[in-house]
Design a protein around this nucleic acid. Structure first.
Length: 549
DNA sequence: TTTTGAATAT
DNA sequence: TATATTCAAA
């Protein structure tokens, strides 16, 4: 009963953040109901067992956040907050989008729905993860419209959404640009589909020949072409096509080829980051590649570094894989935050004996690649930070092995205070709770790889007083397990095939029988078995879910 | 043909 | 951790 609901709301207005109401209420006109709540700034979502588009339109135009058709699925509910959020964030805007619906008739998918005459159906984003970002238009990926009924997802017209101020967040920037253009003429920044006219292509070709093979990269080409409204990505795409066609003379410099890069350095080709142990995402502080979190259960020691390094920009170091006990060779770079006393460690390198795993905390997304380059640079921006080397005396930690190795550059040293090999329990616990704390093996630090200078400072000293001056102190397996250091041996053994090692098979069997007994097994986990291991780990943990572990 | 997601490289 | 480039699928 609307009247009952309203009186409840009147009494305790602040207790109600959202009202979901049937569009057909016995005692009150739903629009009047909506207006009352609108004054109280309480968002309203209407529901109905039948989808009457006109009613829905009207409700949305009157300011309802959304219109749901019953039955309402859990998925619908899960994503509903977004509509409320948008509604609150962008209150009523009656601005109409000129592009709306202009490109949406392909496929005739909307027939059965008949949302409006143009057929421009917008499917609300499900789960709030992925959205269709189609150039600012209210377009729907064709071919999915029929899913709408199946999923009981409410559909709206663009116009209705516009009128009610509902927008997809991702479009906000583009809309803002439209506002700019509408108000002050043209900005010229509107992303548009590139058409490679002969004239444009001529400029492209001219840039190619001017730059030469080596320097013919998208950004340089674009700069030289000096045409507005073209993005780096568009140039890159064109370049790609030209290369495929063979109509351009540029070939990728061999140094840029992934494969040749490795061969040149007598290394294995790097594994795909998504195929094995996944990377550490610093944005989310999680391990793994987007959408592939199932692969994240890599041994912690493989990913986080409890090791503190400083005073070097580009250094190699070795540490132990706490699980296998084997030495890992990594390459690290220091990075700063805005706080000069803070460092990030970036690792790039290969694991000894786990050569398919590429350890890196790097990620990239090509931000700005779709932006029109500013033809007139505003000025030169300088990096104002620098490494505070005063804290870290310059020392040469290079060892004879390092000097002789084609893999190891400069400052190679042994990391001090490496904890001994973890036992199974420690391993599990650390992988669940955080990095292994080498200072106190009974505790596990939740600190990530962000370090303070204070911590960093003491490292070189320990290195100096420690092992680095004595090459004999390097673990034997630095050479034992590293046929890869040998050119011929490295190429002879199976490169990057993720072939299971027989030893690891045995380990897996052991673990299946009795995990406790399998600690500190000296076999070497092969990277290709990481998935199997993770799966097993998950299963085991699930089985023992009563266990506090 | 062009855009775009995502992996890889810088 | 941002940007740049590449690959390949949409």
């Amino acid at each position: 009963m609307a009247s009952v609901a309203l009186s409840m709301i009147m009494e305790q207005k602040d207790d109600y953040k959202l009202v979901m109401a049937n569009i057909n209420m016995p005692d009150m006109d739903s629009l009047s109901f909506l207006r009352v709540l609108h004054k109280k700034e309480i968002p309203v979502i209407f529901m109905s067992s039948e989808m009457n588009v006109n009613v829905a339109k009207k409700a949305l135009a009157e300011g309802a956040c959304f219109f749901l058709e019953k039955p309402i699925s859990l998925e619908d509910l899960k994503s509903m907050w977004q509509h409320v959020y948008r509604k609150i964030r962008t209150p009523r805007k009656y601005k109409h989008k000129p592009n709306c619906g202009t490109k949406m008739n392909s496929g005739n998918d909307c027939q059965g729905i008949k949302i409006n005459e143009a057929g421009d159906v917008l499917r609300p984003p499900l789960g709030g993860v992925k959205r269709n970002e189609a150039g600012g238009e209210c377009s729907l990926a064709t071919g999915h419209a029929l899913d709408i009924d199946k999923q009981n997802t409410c559909t709206l017209t663009c116009k209705a959404q516009e009128a009610s101020g509902i927008k997809r967040p991702i479009d906000d920037k583009e809309e803002q640009e439209e506002v700019n253009r509408d108000s002050n003429g043209t900005t010229g920044d509107k992303k548009h589909r590139a058409v490679w006219t002969p004239e444009l292509h001529l400029k492209f070709t001219a840039a190619l020949s001017a730059l030469g093979d080596l320097k013919s990269r998208p950004k340089a080409i674009l700069k030289l072409m000096n045409v507005p409204n073209i993005t780096v990505r568009q140039v890159a795409s064109h370049l790609q096509v030209q290369r495929i066609r063979g109509t351009d003379t540029t070939s990728l410099p061999s140094s840029l080829s992934r494969l040749s890069n490795c061969i040149n350095r007598n290394e294995f080709p790097p594994a795909k980051q998504s195929s094995l142990v996944c990377q550490y995402d610093q944005r989310t502080s999680s391990f793994g590649v987007q959408g592939n979190t199932a692969q994240l259960d890599a041994p912690n020691s493989l990913i986080t570094s409890p090791i503190l390094l400083a005073g070097f920009n580009n250094h190699d170091y070795r540490r132990q894989n706490l699980y296998s006990g084997h030495t890992i060779l990594s390459h690290y770079t220091n990075h700063h935050t805005n706080n000069p006393s803070e460092f990030y460690l970036r690792s790039q390198g290969q694991f000894q004996n786990l050569n398919q795993i590429r350890e890196t905390s790097s990620f990239g997304y090509g931000a700005g690649m779709n932006e029109i380059m500013n033809q007139q640079p505003l000025g030169i921006e300088e990096n104002s930070f620098r490494t505070s080397e005063s804290h870290f005396p310059s020392m040469n930690y290079m060892t004879p092995e390092a000097a002789a190795s084609p893999y190891i550059s400069g400052n190679t040293f042994q990391v001090p205070n490496e904890p001994s090999v973890m036992n199974q329990e420690q391993y599990y616990t650390s992988s669940l709770t955080g990095p292994f704390d080498s200072q106190n093996q009974n505790q596990f630090s939740t600190e990530g790889a962000r370090l303070t200078t204070e911590l960093l400072e003491f490292v070189p000293e320990q290195i100096a007083s420690g092992n680095t001056t004595n090459p004999n102190k390097f673990p034997a397996d630095f050479n034992d397990g590293s046929q890869k250091l040998d050119t011929t041996a490295g190429e002879a053994s199976s490169p990057n095939e993720n072939q299971p090692l027989s030893e690891y098979d045995e380990l897996l069997k052991l673990l299946e029988e009795d995990p406790q007994e399998a600690s500190c097994v000296g076999s070497v986990p092969n990277a290709g078995d990481a998935d199997r291991y993770c799966e097993w780990l998950r299963e085991t943990l699930l089985e023992n879910s009563t266990d506090p572990l």
